[in-house]
Simulated assay, not measured.
Amino acid sequence: MRLFTALWPSEEAVRHLSSTVDRLDPDLVAEATAGLRKFRFTAPQRWHLTLCFHGDDADQQHVTDRLERRVAQLRAADPPRLRLAGAGTFRGVLWTGVEAATEADDITLRALVRAAGGDPHDYRAHLTIARWVGGRADRELLPGLFADYAGPWWQCRELTVVCSDLREGAPVYRTVHRAAVPPESSG
């Protein structure tokens, strides 16, 4: 089963970024994406931060048990305060970055990455907002559309284990497990 552990931004954060995307000048977008094949913004309901990709043949029970066990060890940590801000590109991807409000929030975010099974040292918090299949993006022009972007602050209240079902078109996401951050006390 193709699984990943994700953190989803708040509805307010999604609305804010979606509104920013909707207000982009079409001429500037056309200029910034010239030469890119099949450039498209991803749907806001798909916007998430992948903390760990578990692979195409991951064992759901193992992934969820490990996540619960590791998140339970974070009981003293407050949910991190985050916001979406800035932008950059990877090959075929335009992303907006994620800022932590304080150093403690950054430490907690990295602890959540570790709890999910990811490597907190190599982790670059980001949210994919657009994709393309070919061509080279201008390293400044395309991310420059969001260079001054800073969304509202929000707190991460849960992690989700998501099954990504590859079908024609975009993958279909289905949440198979939720883990509260911090974990709800059992007594």
Rank of each mutant, 00 (worst) to 15 (best):
L3N: 08
T5A: 06
S10N: 05
E12V: 10
A13Q: 02
R15L: 12
R15M: 09
L17G: 07
L24F: 11
D27S: 15
V29Q: 10
G35E: 00
G35Q: 02
F41C: 11
P44V: 06
Q45M: 05
L49A: 02
L51I: 03
F53W: 12
G55D: 12
D56C: 05
D57K: 15
D59L: 02
Q60T: 13
T64I: 00
R66Y: 00
R69T: 10
R70N: 09
V71A: 00
A72S: 14
A72N: 14
Q73H: 12
L74N: 05
L74I: 04
P79G: 11
P80S: 05
R81P: 01
L84N: 05
A87D: 06
A87G: 08
F90K: 13
G92Y: 04
L94E: 07
G97S: 09
V98Q: 00
A104T: 14
I107N: 06
L109E: 01
R110D: 14
A111H: 11
L112Y: 02
V113T: 08
V113Q: 02
R114A: 13
R114T: 08
R114Q: 14
A115V: 03
H121I: 08
H121V: 15
D122R: 15
R124D: 10
A125D: 00
L127D: 02
T128N: 09
T128W: 03
I129K: 04
I129D: 04
W132Y: 10
G134M: 01
D138Y: 06
R139V: 13
R139H: 12
E140H: 13
E140K: 12
L141F: 04
L141E: 14
L141G: 12
L142H: 01
G144D: 07
G144L: 03
L145E: 09
L145G: 03
A147C: 05
A147D: 09
A147T: 03
A147I: 00
D148Y: 03
Y149D: 07
Y149P: 04
G151T: 01
W154L: 01
W154I: 00
W154H: 08
Q155A: 15
E158T: 14
E158P: 08
L159W: 00
L159D: 02
T160K: 12
V162Y: 06
C163H: 15
C163Y: 10
S164D: 11
D165Y: 08
R167H: 12
R167K: 13
G169C: 07
G169H: 03
Y173G: 09
H177I: 01
R178M: 08
V181C: 06
S185N: 13
G187D: 15
